[in-house]
Design a protein around this nucleic acid. Structure first.
Lengths: 159, 159
DNA sequence: CTTGTATACTTGAGGTCGCAAGCAATATAG
DNA sequence: CTATATTGCTTGCGACCTCAAGTATACAAG
C-alpha cells in the first residue's frame, strides 16, 4: 500500500521537467535578488529593471508604453511603478511635442546616479546566483534557448 | 547627435543577456499560461501547480509547509492560496496525529477530478508555448542548466 | 467637418504575495 | 520538571499587479 516511493520532485511530467525548473528557479532567484536590492538600495527588481532600461536608452528617455512592453508590464502597471520612481525623484515625465498622447519617462540626474549606485552590487548578485553557475558557452547557449520563447509583444502578429 | 542607434534590447549587459531573457520569458509565459488556465478552468497557474503537487503526492497529501517550500511560496502565501482551493472544495485540511503542529493539505475527489480536467489542456499549452521550441535533447539540457540554479530551500544550510 | 476606430495613459476595484508579529505545539538543555 | 529555542501555521498590513472602464489625442473614411 505504501510501497510507492515517489520522490517529491522527480516523476512528475518527465517532458516538462525543464518548465518546472524554470518556474522554481525564477521564483527563488527573483525573491532573493529583489530582496537584496530592496535592503541595500530600497528598490525592487522591477524598479531597477525599469531604471536600467532608461539608463541604456538614447537620451535616457523612453515612451511609457514602450517601457511597459519591454519589461512586460501592463500599461497601468507602468503608471504605478513610475509613480514611485517619480516620487523618489529618479524619473520625470516629459511630454511629446508631435503627439500629445505620448509621455516620455526620463531618467533624472539623481536617477542616473541611482542606477550607477545599484549597478555593481546587483551585477555581482546576478553573477553569484545565476551567471557563475555556467561557463561562457553555457550562458550563450542558455540565452539562445531562452530567446526562442515567445514574448507575445516583441513583433506582435500585426495583420 | 542622434547617430547612436542602440537597439532596444541588445547592447545591455552582454554577459547577462541570458538573465534578461530569463526574466522576460518568464513574465510573458506565465501571463499567457495563467490567463489560459484562468479562462478555461478558473484556476491560476499557482493554483494548478499546487493541485498537481498534491496529485502526484502519496495519498494525494502533503504537509502545508512542504507544499509551500516545493512551489516556492511563503508560509502565509500557502495559507491564502489553499484557502481558495478549500473554498472551492478541491482541497481539505487534515490534522496530523503525531504532531499537532502540522496540518496536511489533501486533495478531495473533486480536486482530483479538477486536476484531471485541467491537465490535458494545460500540458498542451506548455507544449505549444514552451516545449515545442526545443528538441528533446535541448529540453534535457535546458533542464540540466536550470537545475543548477539555487532554490534557497531544497537543502537549506542546516548548521 | 463629422464619425468611427485605434492609441496612450490614468484610475478604481479586486486579487495575490511577502514580511513582521503572534500563537500553539514540539524539541532540546539544564 | 522548567526554561529556551524551534517549527508549523495564521493574521494584519502594505506593496504590487491586472483588468475594466474612462479620458484625451490622433488618424482614417465618408
Amino acid at each position: 500500500m505504501s510501497s510507492q516511493v515517489l520522490r517529491p520532485q522527480a516523476s512528475i511530467e518527465p517532458d516538462h521537467a525543464a518548465w518546472l525548473r524554470f518556474l522554481r528557479a525564477h521564483a527563488a532567484l527573483t525573491r532573493e535578488l529583489s530582496g537584496r536590492l530592496e535592503t541595500a538600495h530600497g528598490v525592487s527588481l522591477r524598479d531597477y529593471d525599469v531604471l536600467v532600461q532608461l539608463y541604456h536608452a538614447p537620451d535616457h528617455r523612453l515612451r511609457r508604453i514602450d517601457l511597459a512592453r519591454t519589461v512586460i508590464l501592463s500599461p497601468s502597471g507602468i503608471t504605478r511603478l513610475l509613480e514611485g520612481l517619480e516620487r523618489a525623484g529618479w524619473v520625470a515625465k516629459h511630454h511629446c511635442d508631435s503627439d500629445q498622447r505620448v509621455t516620455y519617462a526620463v531618467l533624472t540626474d539623481a536617477g542616473l546616479a541611482k542606477v550607477e549606485d545599484c549597478r555593481s552590487t546587483h551585477l555581482a548578485d546576478i553573477e553569484e546566483l545565476f551567471a557563475s553557475r555556467f561557463s561562457a558557452e553555457e550562458r550563450e547557449q542558455l540565452a539562445e534557448l531562452l530567446g526562442r520563447l515567445p514574448l507575445a509583444d516583441a513583433g506582435a502578429c500585426n495583420g
